[in-house]
């Protein structure tokens, strides 16, 4: 077993070595026709220890998190859990200005950290500012606004101390485990 595979199996908790490439995951994946590598290829590249190829693939950011792959895998492998570890490593490795999903997650969590709940309008504005993708879906945003579907002010959870401390748990546990990823 190569080092990268060993690390991925440990951090994701997934039995990656068990995969025999039946491709049921890719058959059911809603985005497999839009990506450069498909779910069964993610697993194969992981088995072969191809870290650079996986981290550089734009396809890893297309996963919708629908979990169809894991529901149908005969070996009980959750590919989204593997992708979570790969994405966390790609983020650590550096330059991801072309990818917008990390910005989205950052803005979403910033909203939760500040208000305890997601303030949709503020979150989307923050995301557009950071990703510079101003024109994406602007018609849809306007239609939602006109139908009263976007609140102008945040709805808050009043116990900001508890929310702050819950975000600190993540940091504390990570430090303890020496920067272990998720799974």
């Amino acid at each position: 077993m190569n080092d990268f595979l060993e690390l991925l199996e440990a951090e994701s908790g997934q039995p990656i070595s068990r995969c025999y490439q039946c491709k049921k995951c890719s058959g059911g994946c809603p985005v497999s026709s839009y990506t450069d590598i498909r779910p069964h290829q993610v697993v194969r590249l992981a088995q072969l220890g191809k870290q650079e190829e996986l981290l550089a693939s734009p396809g890893i950011w297309y996963c919708t998190g629908c979990m169809t792959c894991q529901a149908r895998c005969p070996n009980g492998i959750s590919i989204s859990a593997i992708l979570d570890v790969i994405k966390a490593r790609a983020l650590k490795a550096g330059d991801l200005t072309a990818e917008s999903l990390p910005f989205f997650h950052d803005c979403f969590l910033a909203s939760v950290r500040h208000h305890g709940r997601v303030f949709e309008l503020g979150m989307v504005a923050g995301y557009k500012w950071r990703s510079k993708r101003w024109t994406d879906d602007k018609g849809l945003g306007a239609r939602m606004f006109l139908k009263g579907k976007l609140a102008l002010l945040p709805n808050r959870c009043s116990n900001s101390r508890q929310i702050r401390e819950i975000f600190q748990i993540e940091v504390a546990l990570r430090k303890k485990e020496g920067g272990k990823g998720n799974g």
């Binding site: 966390a88 989205f104 979403f108 969590l109 709940r117 997601v118 116990n159 993540e170």
Partner: peptide, 24 residues
């Protein structure tokens, strides 16, 4: 005084947060 469950974003940020937010 409920809080956001973290959705898919908390999962991306780390395992503990994606469990701690719902647990509250």
């Amino acid at each position: 005084d409920w809080n956001c469950c973290g959705a898919s974003s908390a999962h991306g940020a780390g395992h503990a947060l994606s469990r701690a937010l719902p647990l509250r």
